[in-house]
Structures are given as structure tokens and as C-alpha cells.
Amino acid sequence: MMNTIGIWIGALLTLAIYSFLYKDNPFYKLAENIFVGVSAGYWAVVLWFDYAWPNLFEPLFKKGQWFNIFPIFIGILMFAPLIPRISWMVRIPLTFTMGVAMAVSITQIVQGDIFPQLQATFLPLTGVSFFDAFSNLLIICGVIFTLIYFYFSKEHKGVLGISARIGIWFMMVSFGASFGYTIMARVSLFIGRIYFLLHNWLGVI
């Protein structure tokens, strides 16, 4: 019974959202507001149980880690703008999160992005099949030409201009491929919704 009601809710909400394809209407607005309310509630619960409780409150209340009072206090300071006299204190949680996030991102960028990506670009041009060598050469040239396009310290003229233009070609192929991929991902979602309506709800397929 509950399952059937759930399917009906899902189907009616799906139709309400698709009604926007005709024009903005009360059904769409209703579904949109339900979505915002449910999503906000969902993420509040998930973040509380996944991060705030296990990282801050549980060690304080269950393991007696008294020093966890500091991050909780820092978190509560997010609400400082509600009291104009101490509103500037909102900068404390902001700078704390920025400081840690930036430091973590520096190490992650260097260790997780730059070095592995550089390593993956040094590809063999000999000792492999002609096609693989061609593909490897294309990757090496593609990376260099794309980087040259983003080099703005010198005017893009002569060899630099030609290289930057080839870099644009590589990027255009990449953007086109990403665009096609995105469209197909959305179409897959659409097919999934239509399948839900015809199979789960109406049972015609």
C-alpha cells in the first residue's frame, strides 16, 4: 500500500515538473517548493549525522574530548551576524574553514593532480604500435598546445599564435565531447523518468 502511494506521489510530481515545458504553472511551483523543502531537510539531516555529530558532538559527549568545544563554538559563530554588535565574528569560522581547506587543497593539487597528470603525459612514442604512438603524440601535443593557449605573457603571434590556435581546436573537440556527453546523460535521466511513468506507474510496458 505504502509502495503504491509512493509511486503515485513520484508520478504526479514528475508530471508536475514536466508541465513546466508548456509554461510556468501552479503545479510546477508546488513541485518546485516541495523539492527545495525536502532537499534542504535531507541535507541538514545527512550533514548532521555524517559530519557534525561524529566529528564534533559525539567525541565531546561520549568520549569526553572537552577540547571539541572549540570547533562547536566556531561553528556557532556562523550565527553571529544575527547580533549586530558581534557580527564581525562570523569571520572566525570563515577563516578557519578557508585556512584548512586551502592548505588541504595545496597538498591535494600538487600530490593528486599536477604530478600524476604530468606523469601520465610522458607517454612512449616508440616500442608501441603506430596507432598508439600517434595517439600518445596527440596527447602530448594537445596538452602543450592547450597550455600555450593559456599563456598570456606574450602576444599570440607567429609560432605561438599557431600553437595557441591548435590548442583551441583540441579544446573545441573536448567541449563538444563533454557537451554531447552531458546531453546524453540528461536524456538517460529523461528515459528513466518516462520508464518509471510507463512501467512503475501505468504498467503499460
Partner: peptide, 28 residues
């Protein structure tokens, strides 16, 4: 997806990473 797309994405990624690194240092 594997060859020209990877090459361009990698070039863009290097640019983003260098930008992020300098921004992170500016913030710190």
C-alpha cells in the same frame, strides 16, 4: 574521450591547478 578530450582537459586542469595554488597562497 581518451585522446583529444584528455589532452585538452589535462591542459585546462594544469591551468586551474596553478590558479588554485596561487589563490590558496594568497588566502593563507
Amino acid at each position: 574521450m581518451r585522446i583529444p578530450n584528455t589532452a585538452a582537459k589535462r591542459g585546462i586542469l594544469f591551468g586551474i591547478d596553478l590558479g588554485l595554488l596561487s589563490m590558496a597562497l594568497r588566502v593563507l
